[in-house]
Design a protein around this nucleic acid. Structure first.
Lengths: 220, 220
DNA sequence: CTATAAAATTAGACTAGTCTAAAAATATTT
DNA sequence: AAATATTTTTAGACTAGTCTAATTTTATAG
C-alpha cells in the first residue's frame, strides 16, 4: 500500500504537527528526516497527489484525515514493537528505537492486533509515549516537563522527550525511569538547574535534563 | 548491509541448490522469484561482484561460503519468526509465510539471538522445516516423502514440502499436522493414491498429497 | 521599499531494481 | 552437421527515491 519512505514522511510530519501549529515547513521535514529540502518537496508533492496531505507551494504541508490516520498506524506499530522488545525480549529501553524503526513497516493488520493482545494492550511504550489505538486516537495525558515544576512540587516521571541512547543511559545511571517519584527541592534561577529528592537521595540535574523529562504532577 | 532484493535472491538460490546439484540456472531463479530472466542476469552479476556467488555467463550460479551463510541467516530469521507467530501470537500455520517473508529482513543480530532464546531455541518451524543455527548449519533429518512408503509401513508426519495455504488448510480439515502418526494400509499402482490409517480412521489421499508430506519412518 | 538573506522549488543526474525487445549462446532435433 | 528451439544476455527504458546546483519565491533588514 505505502512504501517505507512514504510512511516515514507521514510519521515525521505527524510529529512535527504536534510541535508547531499550522503547516509544517519543508526545511523542518528535511531536518527531521535527515534528508535534503529538495527531496522533501518531491515527496510532499507525491503525498499530496495521494491525498495524504494538503500542500501549497512555499506554504508547507498539513496531513489530511487519511494521512493522519496512516501516520498514527505506523506510530502504533512502532510503539507496540518497542513494548515487545522490552517486555518480552528484555531489551533495554535505549536499544529498541532503531529496531522498532524497521518493524513499524511490517504490513499486517492482523499481526498488530494479535501483538497488541499478546502484550496486554499496553497504553504506553517503554519511553512513556502513548500508543495510538486501532482508530488512530492517542490518549492525551496531563504531563509537564520537569523544568516547569516549582520548588516544593512533586511528580512521577511518565516519559522522556528526547530518547537518545545517551540520555536514556544517563537516566539509568541515575536510576531514573518511568514511575520514579521526584520531589523538587530547589531550582536555580541562574542556569535552570534543579535539586531533586529521589528515593531519599539528593540529585542535582541540569536544565537540559529537566527539559527532557516528562512528569505527572502529584497533588499533595 | 544487504538489500531486501539481494537477500531474496540469495534465499531463492539457496533453496534451488538443495534441489538441483550443480549450478542454478537463470530461468530457475526467475521462476522461483517470480521475475524475468533478464532481471535475474542483472542481479546475479551484482551478487557475483560482491562475491556472494560464483557465476559464469550462460553457466548459472553457485553460492560462495559467504553467500550460503547469508542465505541461511535469512532462512533462520524467517523460520524463527514463523515459530513466534504460531507459538506466541496463535497464528495458524497457513497464515505465517507472507508475514515472515517481511520479518526475515529485519536487521539486528541481537534481536534474533533474543527471539531464539525467547522461543526456547526451537529446531523446527511450524511446517517442520529445520531452523539453521547461528553459524548457518542446518540439522539434516531422516525424512521421506509419504509417497515413498510401502504398504504396511508406519511414519510420523514431520513436515510439508509445499506450504501453500490451500494445502495446509486441506491437511487441517483432515486433522493431519506435524506429529500425526500415519499407517499405510494400501497403495494403488494405477494412480499412486494411498489408503492410510490415522487415529483409527481410514483416509484416502491422492498421489499429489502423498508427494507433499514428509514423514519419519517408524520401525516396528 | 529596495537589498539581501533565507527558504523552497525545479532541473537534471544518479542508483537500485525492474521490464520489454532484440541479439547471442547453447541445446536439441532431424 | 544444419536447422530449430530454448536459454541467456544485452540494450535501452521506466519508477522510486535521492542528490547537487541553479532558480524562484518569500521573509527580513536597513
Amino acid at each position: 500500500m505505502f512504501t517505507h519512505a512514504e510512511e516515514n514522511y507521514l510519521k515525521a510530519i505527524f510529529h512535527l504537527e504536534q510541535e508547531t501549529q499550522g503547516e509544517v515547513s519543508t526545511n523542518a521535514i528535511a531536518e527531521q528526516m535527515e534528508t535534503k529540502p529538495s527531496s522533501v518537496t518531491d515527496m510532499v508533492q507525491k503525498l499530496a497527489d495521494k491525498e495524504l496531505l494538503s500542500y501549497k507551494k512555499y506554504k508547507g504541508a498539513l496531513l489530511t484525515q487519511t494521512g493522519r490516520k496512516k501516520a498514527a498506524d505506523v506510530i502504533r506499530k512502532h510503539r507496540l514493537w518497542e513494548v515487545f522488545l522490552v517486555d518480552k525480549l528484555n531489551f533495554h529501553w535505549d536499544e529498541v528505537h532503531p529496531i522498532a524503526e524497521q518493524l513499524e513497516h511490517i504490513q499486517s493488520a492482523e499481526l498488530i492486533e494479535r501483538l497488541d493482545r499478546f502484550l496486554g494492550s499496553p497504553d504506553f511504550d517503554p519511553h512513556g509515549d502513548p500508543i495510538p489505538d486501532q482508530h488512530g486516537n492517542i490518549k492525551r495525558t496531563e504531563k509537564k516537563l520537569l523544568s516547569e515544576l516549582q520548588k516544593g512540587q512533586r511528580g512521577v516521571c511518565v516519559g522522556v522527550k528526547e530518547s537518545s541512547s545517551d540520555f536514556l543511559q544517563y537516566l539509568d545511571r541515575k536510576k531514573i525511569t518511568i514511575g520514579t517519584k521526584i520531589h523538587v527541592l530547589g531550582k536555580e534561577f541562574f542556569d535552570g538547574s534543579m535539586i531533586l529528592r529521589v528515593r531519599d537521595q539528593q540529585f542535582f540535574i541540569s536544565k537540559k535534563t529537566s527539559e527532557n523529562l516528562f512528569v505527572q504532577i502529584q497533588e499533595s
